[in-house]
């Protein structure tokens, strides 16, 4: 409050003739200047985003003209003969992301329910902070741990067991060398769990207490209260957290690049090496020779951008109802 004393008093002329202020006087009051400066910053953000879309669109022109929609459907990625098709990368990206969701969603939801409904508030806060720290671990460090810790464990312990039990299924057939869709999905699952937990917990905590009390009064168990009364109420927000996690999994680069094996092929087996859009850009962009090659890689970036944009928009749409409830109280 002491700082207000140092500001000069506002000119009183504003009250005498509000519409006859000269530009200079308006500037002295600072409102116009402050508005313009902050407005310019806000506008910069829109301009940067527009520029981003424009660059991706313009710099992928060669590839778009050469292959058209066929680019998305062709599985032929052959830089030597200048043939480019994105299908193996789209397949790998979608497969690893959904596999990661299958692993991460039940665990994340369970942990969120525990933290929101069961754990004492203090313990819950500490555990949530720790889980949010997981989200702060850089992706390259997940990759490092993936290569040197997860791959050996998967190769020596987990996959032999999986193959022993489910080996007859086509998704678990073939030799396993460590790098694979499955390994990438495991790393991705660990990376997206914190997002699911922290957002779902917030959503669950925002469910009104009366919702719990009403069912509790009927004599329901704690689990019934949670599963039949609290979770349905928080459904939309929890679904939103899954979509946000999906968008992150689709765009994740470094950790996936380090454990997926980087082979552009489409196979049913989850244990064979693959490739994702982000990984192929990371690996081949600096070495790409020839304009068409670079353009094809930029078109891949454009595809990735479009897909994550749509998923993010869906997530926002789902969480929109929730936000308005939050701001209401």
């Amino acid at each position: 409050m002491a700082s207000t004393a140092t500001t000069p008093p506002a000119p009183s002329s504003a009250q005498d003739a509000p519409e006859k202020l000269s530009l200079l006087e308006k500037f002295k009051k600072g409102d116009e200047a402050a508005f313009l400066i902050t407005f310019a910053s806000a506008l910069t953000i829109i301009l940067i985003t527009c520029l981003l879309v424009q660059r991706l669109w313009a710099d992928s022109a060669l590839s778009r003209h050469a292959f058209g929609w066929h680019f998305l459907a062709s599985s032929d990625w052959d830089p030597v003969n200048d043939q480019y098709g994105a299908l193996p990368f789209i397949y790998g990206t979608v497969l690893t992301a959904f596999l990661a969701l299958i692993i991460a969603v039940p665990v994340g939801m369970g942990a969120a329910i525990f933290l929101a409904e069961l754990a004492p508030r203090k313990l819950s806060n500490v555990l949530t902070f720790m889980i949010e720290l997981l989200a702060a671990v850089p992706s390259v460090i997940y990759g490092l741990l993936g290569i040197f810790v997860l791959l050996p464990i998967l190769r020596d312990r987990i996959v032999p067991v999986l193959q022993g039990v489910f080996g007859f299924l086509p998704i678990f057939k073939g030799a396993f060398y460590g790098v694979s869709y499955f390994s990438a999905a495991c790393v991705l699952a660990i990376m997206i769990v914190p997002f699911i937990v922290s957002i779902s917990r917030e959503v669950l905590l925002a469910v009104p207490q009366s919702q719990r009390e009403a069912m509790m009064a009927l004599g329901a168990t704690k689990w019934d209260v949670t599963w039949k009364s609290v979770v349905p109420y928080a459904q939309r927000g929890m679904a939103g957290s899954i979509f946000l996690a999906l968008a992150r999994a689709l765009g994740e680069t470094m950790a996936v690049t380090m454990v997926i094996g980087n082979v552009p092929s489409i196979t049913a087996s989850l244990l064979s090496p693959g490739y994702t859009i982000a990984a192929v850009i990371a690996n081949e962009f600096t070495e790409a020779t020839g304009d068409l090659y670079v353009n094809a890689l930029i078109e891949l970036a454009l595809v990735l951008f479009a897909v994550t944009m749509i998923i993010n928009a869906l997530a926002r749409l789902l969480m929109l109802g929730m936000k308005s409830q939050e701001t209401a109280h």
């Binding site: 520029l51 981003l52 991706l56 765009g251 982000a278 890689l297 930029i298 970036a301 990735l304 994550t308």
Partner: peptide
């Protein structure tokens, strides 16, 4: 912009 994958920012 927050949702744009970081590799796409790199390309940009």
């Amino acid at each position: 912009l927050n949702g744009v994958p970081s590799i796409v920012i790199g390309i940009f």
